[in-house]
């Protein structure tokens, strides 16, 4: 097991190297650089060139790449080109809202989706089943920002139940914290509910059709415990897999949701940085997101051993 984890962690290295190289080239080969923005409205062409030089952007590309990779290896993401803070500090400051948003979304989505999926599987072919499956397709089709604005219009502007925007740190009270997270979590979570409800339903149906389930039923195990204890446990593997795949979706969704609801998280940090060409921040955040993606997928693989004792590494 430990050997497997170590092997998997090592295999992350080439993946992250590809990410690093790709992101670096993407940024540095594109037109537009921070120097012109720093130089400002009244700057001359000479000013811009001088600032570019001062930022080290006139160095050959391979040299800039080596410098960046070298500091990356030492765990240093560099400093923002515009502020004096290191990128790691900036990311740390923005982490809470993003984690809170992703966490609440995932939590509620999984809870709701599994309930819906199990219900649909238990009543397969009925109106409830059809309704859940229809909801799933629709939920997957409406873009986050459309849902977001519909929710804002309804619950914040018309009914005035919930705030339009913003984020309150959890330290300022769980009440206000949740208050601000309700609408964004629903907007972002809808696609997950759809995705996970569908997979839950189909795997449940698969499991219910297995021999041992039939045996259990024949032995007179009550339907409800059977559904929850036996079937759901066996259906867990594919569900967890989907959650792992969903992380990529979630990261993308977070970026948009943070914009719609003005949540000062990492997504906003990187979108602002792109507009300003703050290379170290863009590079740092993409490395971070990619790392999270790879790690989550590792965790998903490891969770299989817990959920399904037949799987061993």
């Amino acid at each position: 097991m430990i050997a497997y984890i170590v092997r998997r962690l090592i295999s992350m290295l080439p993946v992250m190297a590809v990410v690093a190289l790709f992101v670096f080239l993407l940024l540095h080969l594109a037109p537009g650089d921070p120097a012109a923005i720093i130089a400002g409205d009244n700057a001359t062409v000479e000013n811009i060139a001088a600032i570019r030089k001062a930022l080290g952007l006139d160095e050959p590309l391979w040299k800039q790449l080596l410098v960046w990779v070298w500091s990356l290896i030492q765990g240093d993401l560099g400093k923002s080109m515009f502020w004096n803070e290191p990128v790691t500090t900036l990311i740390r400051q923005r982490m809470e809202p993003t984690i809170a948003l992703a966490g609440t979304t995932l939590f509620f989505a999984v809870a709701i989706a599994i309930t819906l999926g199990v219900t649909a599987a238990a009543r397969v072919g009925t109106g409830i089943d059809r309704f859940v499956m229809g909801l799933a397709v629709v939920g997957f089709s409406v873009p986050v920002f459309v849902t977001g604005y519909l929710l804002i219009f309804l619950f914040a502007i018309q009914l005035k139940w919930l705030p339009v925007q913003g984020y309150t740190p959890i330290a300022e009270g769980v009440g206000p914290w949740i208050h601000n997270l309700v609408l964004p979590s629903i907007a972002l979570g809808l696609a997950y509910v759809a995705l996970i409800a569908r997979i839950t339903r189909t795997t449940m149906l698969d499991v219910l059709a297995e021999d041992y389930m039939r045996t259990a039923r024949a032995k007179g195990v009550a339907p409800r415990p059977m559904l929850l204890k036996h079937a759901l446990k066996n259906a867990a593997v594919p569900i967890v897999t989907v959650i792992g795949i969903g992380v990529a979706l979630l990261i993308g969704g977070v970026v948009i949701t943070e914009t719609v609801f003005n949540i000062p998280g990492i997504g906003r940090l990187v979108v602002d940085a792109i507009a300003r060409r703050d290379y170290p921040i863009i590079q740092g955040v993409i490395m971070l997101f990619s790392g999270v993606y790879v790690l989550v997928n590792l965790l998903v693989d490891l969770s299989y051993t817990v959920l399904d004792p037949r799987i061993r590494y």
Binding site: P14, V15, M16, A17, V18, V19, F22, V23, L26, L27, A30, P31, G32, A248, I251, G252, V255, I256, V270, V271, I274, A275, R277, I282, V285, I286, F289, S290, G291, Y293, V294
Partner: peptide
Amino acid sequence: RVMDGMMAIPAILLAIALVSLNR
């Protein structure tokens, strides 16, 4: 390995970066 790396980059961020950095 290259494909794994590309998959790890959030699609939406990659797209935003590509589009706003170019015209």
